[in-house]
Design a protein around this nucleic acid. Structure first.
Length: 540
RNA sequence: GGCCCGUUCGUCUAGGGGUUAGGACGUAUCCCUUUCACGGAUAAAACACGAGUUCGAUUCUCGUACGGGCUACCA
């Protein structure tokens, strides 16, 4: 059977908290599949549980998808398409009419059992070492419309007795779910129970709302997490009961994301414990005030995050690891999604970011680095060379140009933009302390002359290339019968305070002759003072 | 417990009846190098186990073990 229908898929989270990275991956696979087949990708908010609703969660989901570049064609927070509304709480009345149809056709029934009576039954069965399931075996002994006359049912309904609606699972049938990833999954109806479809608060359960909406919104493929596989037969049964079998969507159940160590599903706790984000964006719980870190704020590049996520459970036939969103769309197929759960690897995630960082343009990185620099500069004593003569910080435009050059020097040394400042703050602010441990180890008296001469030569240069600084360095060293290499690390300390860092001569060129020579003179003086006081101390 | 799904290096995975079982992350060593990196090279590292089918099984079948999920008027 060839399907000519336009592909339409959906991501349907419930706003019960921040969107987990596993959820982002589900959204991503839906998005990739839709784009691959020139289809539509829909965001539907499944807010049928009033108890678990969390303020801000919906906005968080939308913002997360936007940051990742996973953009729905229709849905809450995006374009309102022809199937509006996309928030289930706003579709409340709809579900009731559908559930009534089911009751009329004998596929569902009213149940008046109280939650506590069912709890009691569960407890009793548990103590006996078995379990309780509301279904074909016992539904004729329970408090529901199957065991009442129509008049009795009507009376209770009119009296306002709280009720739920349950599906009436057939007693002897085999339900087959055709899963695009797992093949045929069979379940006998004797293993299923009469799940609640409609709650006493007037809201549908996930099962009902999901099937009704997917049908109404003309969804062709349901791509969701593996935790839904056990209830997939129930959903198939619902499609059958509604008479929608011919247009039933195809199913694909994605493998779960697992903890990096140990066993089990990846959870927020693991991130806290092992020190990596589990959420795309920072999140503060509105009730507890508890904070969770996000990939964005930790300095991850969204493309790297998406690339990593795509490979947690999917892989193309080749050995390629780096895929842009366009390349992912091109290469993606549900058939190549793996069946087994994937343990999340924080190290590989960092590596992905490193790769994307290195391939980013200096311009782009400078834009991201600029606000960090501005914040740091206002915190610390302004660096002389980044001030105007009046003592104000240089303007943002010039600072951006400077960042551009700085970024070019550090980007190969970092995995994250957040590390840039620690790695090269001496390019912006003169060092307060210098590494005297290395100086003490390598210092020889003749070096003093070298530094004086070098600083002197630099002070006259307004602008220079790195090669110029290097030639100058070599020439002066040679004049003093020194090997250029032996003073290099010491020179680095005189300029940056540290024994390691960005390319030495590029650094000097960027700082400029005047700033470099000033730093050398001051730090040399500081060092010589340290030497003499140490000498005085040891003489006593 | 019951039901469902799964199992290739430590991790993500490619492969698939006959292969030196491939790649990536991580790890180790070496090269490059003023430092730290980048880069380059090399190495160690896997088919859960037991039967069956077969000339031959990591690949197919069954079982066992192990792992995961579900088992709410949560999604």
């Amino acid at each position: 059977m060839i399907d000519h229908k336009k592909v339409r898929v959906r991501f349907a989270p419930s706003p019960t908290g921040p969107l987990h990275m596993g959820g982002v991956r589900t959204a991503l696979y839906n998005y990739l599949f839709a784009k691959k087949h020139q289809g539509d990708f829909i965001l539907r908010i499944e807010d049928t549980d009033q108890q678990r609703f969390v303020a801000g969660a919906e906005e968080y989901i939308i913002a997360s998808l936007k940051w990742c570049g996973i953009l729905p064609n229709e849905g809450v927070g995006f374009a309102e398409g022809p199937f509006s509304p996309y928030r289930q709480s706003e579709r409340k009345d709809l579900y009731k009419t559908y559930v009534e149809t089911l009751i009329r056709n004998g596929h569902a029934y009213y149940a008046f059992d109280t939650a506590s009576s069912l709890d009691q039954l569960r407890k009793e069965r548990e103590q006996q070492g078995s379990s309780f399931a509301y279904g074909p075996q016992n539904r004729h002994q329970l408090f529901n419309s199957l065991n009442m006359t129509a008049a009795e049912v009507l009376q209770r309904l009119n009296e306002g007795t709280p009720y739920v609606v349950r599906i009436k699972v057939p007693e002897n049938d085999l339900i087959v779910v055709h899963d695009l990833i797992r093949g045929e999954v069979e379940m006998h109806t004797s293993q299923m129970d009469d799940k609640v479809l409609f709650k006493s608060d007037g809201m549908p359960t996930y099962h009902l709302a999901n099937v009704v909406d997917d049908h109404l919104m003309e969804i062709t493929h349901v791509i969701r997490g593996e935790e839904w596989l056990p209830s997939a037969p129930l959903h198939v049964l619902l499609y059958k009961s509604f008479g929608w079998e011919s247009t039933m969507p195809k199913f694909a159940h994605l493998p779960l994301l697992l903890k990096p160590d140990g066993n089990g599903k990846l959870s927020k706790r693991d991130g806290d414990r092992l020190g990596f984000p589990v959420f795309p964006l920072n999140w503060t719980d509105p009730l507890t005030g508890e904070q969770s870190k996000g990939y964005k704020e930790q300095g991850y590049i969204p493309e790297a995050f998406v690339n990593m996520l795509a490979h947690l459970g999917w892989h193309a036939a080749d050995d390629q690891e780096i895929y842009s969103m366009e390349a992912l769309i091109e290469a993606f197929s549900l058939e190549r999604v793996s069946k087994s759960g994937a343990k999340f690897d924080p190290d590989k995630t960092k590596w992905y970011n490193e790769v994307y960082l290195r391939s980013s343009t200096d311009q782009h990185l400078a834009m991201l680095f600029l606000p960090i620099v501005q914040e740091q500069l206002t915190k610390s004593i302004p660096s002389r060379h980044l001030c105007t003569s009046a003592g104000h910080l240089i303007d943002a435009e010039s600072l951006l140009a400077y960042c551009n050059k700085a970024v070019a020097l550090v980007k190969d040394k970092a995995q994250f933009i957040n590390e840039f400042w620690d790695l090269c703050n001496y390019l912006f602010v003169a060092p307060i302390t210098i590494d005297t441990t290395i100086l003490a180890k390598k210092w020889k008296p003749p070096y003093e002359t070298f530094f004086i001469k070098f600083a002197d030569a630099l002070s006259t240069l307004t602008s220079m290339e790195a090669t110029q600084a290097e030639k100058l360095h070599t020439a002066i060293a040679n004049d003093l019968a020194l090997k250029p290499g032996e003073v290099m690390q010491l020179l680095r300390i005189m300029v940056s305070g540290q024994g390691s860092g960005v390319n030495l001569f590029e650094m000097i060129a960027l700082l400029g002759g005047k700033e470099s020579s000033t730093r050398i003179e001051q730090n040399l003086k500081k060092w010589l003072q340290t030497l003499s006081t140490d000498a005085a101390a040891s003489r006593q």
